[in-house]
Design a protein around this nucleic acid. Structure first.
Lengths: 142, 142
DNA sequence: ATTACTGCAAAGCATTTGCAGACTG
DNA sequence: CAGTCTGCAAATGCTTTGCAGTAAT
């Protein structure tokens, strides 16, 4: 519904490819790899190069408008817009599908590390298991 | 204190290198990368090759005696013995030090994904922040 | 006009794979 | 002895980097 407008980071030129990267990330509900974004942009006929996507993503991460995540069982890093919403993902160990989880177990959690020892800035949680589709497939002995 | 004896997986030959990998993993309290394990074993004068370490680790993961984790901000995967103890890690965003955390926020947590949608098998939590050493360093304006 | 950006090519680095000889059971 | 392992080399795949031309401000 409400399409929150992203503030363009100061000092960054507004090029076609950069706008395209943001646009792709705005349209997806799950994190995408550089290659995903690359092929999505190529669909529109643009002459983009993968290294450019990597450079743009790296820059966006540095500017804080994109988060870089590494998902287990996957060699490729994935990226998402930093919506400043707290989010976690469930990952299917079979098909590697990524499913967003909205509530967070850390909200009321105080880890047993003292403030003196470690100043906690954030966390990263990943739930793994079998998604509905894969569960069904393995039930039917085909 | 109690040095729990690891049951050797059936069907796997007990070679020097494999025993050395287990031994290195038994001696450490934090997850190690393949390269870490490799150089640790080389110290003892063995003529090992990195690809062998990777092959052994992959095998151990498949047999369930080793866990493979990917830690953010690090390109290299790390490995730990599967002690069947529930464990998480805090990672310093500055020096990348890894600190074990013993309690777990997931114990009493029920995520908002139904059993029908996703059968949860486990999870992976990573806390990030600044460790004591790095906090002290940045306080002193040197 | 300046300087940042990108197409493109090539390098870099962790990890994987192929093969033949070595070792375990 | 047979089949599994490993040393070794080379390949693979994601990501980074260098450079010169192009585009944004």
């Amino acid at each position: 519904m409400e399409n929150k407008k992203l503030k363009w980071p100061q000092g960054l030129k507004k090029t076609e490819t950069r706008k395209a990267v943001i646009s792709v990330l705005e349209k997806t509900e799950k994190p995408l790899s550089a290659a995903d974004i690359f092929s999505e942009i190529k669909k529109n006929g643009s002459n983009v190069w993968l290294s450019t996507i990597y450079r743009i993503l790296e820059l966006f991460v540095k500017k804080g408008i994109v988060n870089k995540l590494s998902v287990m069982n996957s060699e490729m890093a994935v990226y998402e817009l930093n919506q400043f919403k707290h989010k976690h993902y469930a990952v299917c160990v079979n098909c590697h599908k990524i499913i967003p989880v909205d509530n967070c177990p850390m909200e009321k959690f105080v880890p047993q590390i003292e403030d003196d020892d470690f100043r906690i800035m954030g966390h990263n949680l990943e739930i793994y298991g079998i998604c509905k589709d894969c569960a069904h497939k393995s039930n039917k002995r085909s």
